[in-house]
Amino acid sequence: MIKAQLFPSVAPNTVNNFIDYILDDQFSDSSFHRIIKDFMVQGGMVKDTKSPIRGEFASNGFTNNLKHTYGVLSMARTSDKNSATSQFFMMTSTSPHLDGAYASFGGIISGFSVLNQLERLNTNYNDEPLSKVVIESIEVDLKKYEPSPVIYYNK
């Protein structure tokens, strides 16, 4: 089991979006579908993707100082800076080239051994694990945090 802490003070809409997918139980039975050794493990491809959100990072005009270091959670996206939906990745190394270009929004606080095991899995030429790695569930303990409605990006 991996436990992470989300940082709404760093990327509020990104955190609210992630929580929204969790509360809608969208991640259950999805998988970690992309693994690149010494870089990251990516998951969160869901059946019912919602609209994209605005990328909360410096090259998109948003201050986000959370660096892409080992254990940091960040949103995956296409080349469009405002295309993040449900997919996220967990850093397995420090990757400064992502700082300011991807929305980091949390960090792993326990379960680093699981992350390391995932990173060591054999993959094919598309970085897909040779055996399916299922996300059984993702849960969130909101404590006293009250998520705001997600603000979707309108082009």
Rank of each mutant, 00 (worst) to 15 (best):
I2T: 09
A4H: 02
L6Y: 03
L6K: 03
F7Y: 14
F7D: 08
A11K: 03
P12I: 12
N13L: 07
V15Y: 04
F18S: 02
I19N: 02
D20H: 13
I22H: 01
D25Y: 12
F32R: 07
K37P: 07
D38S: 11
F39T: 00
M40S: 05
M40I: 14
Q42W: 04
G43Q: 08
M45Q: 09
M45C: 06
V46K: 01
T49Q: 13
T49W: 04
K50Y: 03
K50F: 04
S51N: 14
S51M: 14
P52M: 12
P52T: 01
P52V: 06
E56W: 03
F57D: 08
A58S: 13
N60D: 08
G61E: 05
T63W: 04
T63C: 07
N64P: 10
N65F: 12
L66W: 01
V72L: 07
L73N: 04
S74F: 06
S74Q: 06
S74K: 06
M75T: 09
M75H: 06
R77D: 00
S79L: 08
D80H: 15
N82W: 09
A84Q: 12
A84K: 10
S86V: 07
S86E: 04
S86F: 00
Q87V: 06
F88A: 15
F89K: 03
M91S: 01
T92R: 04
P96M: 02
H97N: 12
H97D: 08
H97M: 06
H97I: 09
L98P: 08
G100P: 11
G106N: 07
G106S: 05
I108N: 00
I109L: 02
G111L: 05
V114T: 12
N116A: 13
Q117G: 13
L118A: 08
L118V: 13
L118I: 14
E119Y: 01
E119T: 13
R120L: 11
R120A: 13
L121A: 07
N122T: 12
N122S: 14
N124Y: 02
N124I: 00
N126F: 09
P129Q: 08
L130W: 04
V133K: 11
V133L: 05
I135E: 03
I135Y: 07
S137R: 15
S137V: 03
E139W: 05
E139Q: 15
E139I: 02
D141G: 05
P147M: 03
S148M: 10
I151G: 01
Y152R: 02
Y153T: 07
N154D: 11
